[in-house]
C-alpha cells in the first residue's frame, strides 16, 4: 500500500471501503520509461534555461546562449507533453529534439574548439538518450495505437429487436408510460 493510499484511507468515511492491498499497475514498461524520460526532459530543460552561460562555456559555444535557452524551453515543453495523455506526441517531439541537439553539437565538434572533448562527451550522452527516446516512443506508440486489425463491422447491431420502423411506430402510438412514472 502506498503512502497516498494510507493517507486517503484515514480521510474516508467509516463505511467506505479502504485499500488493503493495491493490485499490480496496468502501466506498461514503456509507459514507465516514458514517465522517467519526461522528468529527465523537464530537469534538463531547467538546467539549460538557468545555466545557459555555463553550458556555453563548457562546450566552447560562447554566443550561443540564446539557442541553449531556447532548447531548454523545448525540452520542458516536450517533457510536459510526454507526461500528459498525449505521451506519444511528446516522445516523438523528444526524438526530433535529439536530432537538433546532435546537429548543434556536431557543428561545435570542430578541431579548433578547445572544449572539443566536452562536446564529444555531450554527443555520447545525447546519443544514448536518443536511443532511449526512440525505444520509448516506438514502444508507447505500439502499445497505445489502434493496431493494424481491420475495424469490426457492427452493421447488424440496430438495437431494435423488431426493426426501426416497428419501433418508431410503437413509440409514436405512445403505448409507453409518461416520463417519471417509475
Amino acid at each position: 500500500m502506498s503512502v497516498a493510499d494510507r493517507l486517503t484511507n484515514i480521510t474516508r468515511s467509516p463505511g467506505d471501503p479502504k485499500v488493503l492491498k493495491a493490485g499490480p499497475s496496468a502501466l506498461g514498461a514503456t509507459d514507465n520509461l516514458a514517465h522517467k524520460l519526461s522528468w529527465f526532459s523537464i530537469a534538463l530543460g531547467v538546467v539549460e534555461l538557468v545555466g545557459a552561460e555555463r553550458i556555453a562555456g563548457a562546450l566552447g559555444m560562447r554566443g550561443k546562449e540564446h539557442l541553449i535557452r531556447a532548447y531548454g524551453a523545448r525540452e520542458i515543453s516536450s517533457g510536459i507533453l510526454s507526461l500528459s495523455v498525449d505521451k506519444q506526441a511528446g516522445l516523438w517531439s523528444r526524438v526530433a529534439g535529439d536530432g537538433l541537439d546532435i546537429a548543434t553539437l556536431l557543428a561545435a565538434y570542430r578541431h579548433d574548439n578547445p572544449k572539443r572533448d566536452n562536446v564529444g562527451l555531450a554527443l555520447a550522452m545525447v546519443a544514448g538518450i536518443s536511443l532511449l527516446d526512440v525505444i520509448a516512443a516506438k514502444g508507447v506508440t505500439a502499445r497505445h495505437s489502434r493496431g493494424a486489425t481491420k475495424p469490426r463491422d457492427y452493421s447488424d447491431r440496430s438495437g431494435f429487436p423488431g426493426g426501426l420502423a416497428a419501433a418508431r411506430s410503437a413509440s409514436r402510438s405512445g403505448r409507453t408510460q409518461e416520463p417519471g412514472a417509475a
Binding site: P17, K18, V19, L20, K21, A22, G23, P24, S25, L27
Partner: peptide, 9 residues
Amino acid sequence: EDIRCDEVS
C-alpha cells in the same frame, strides 16, 4: 492512467 484491481475492505 493508473487504475488497479485492488483488495479493499
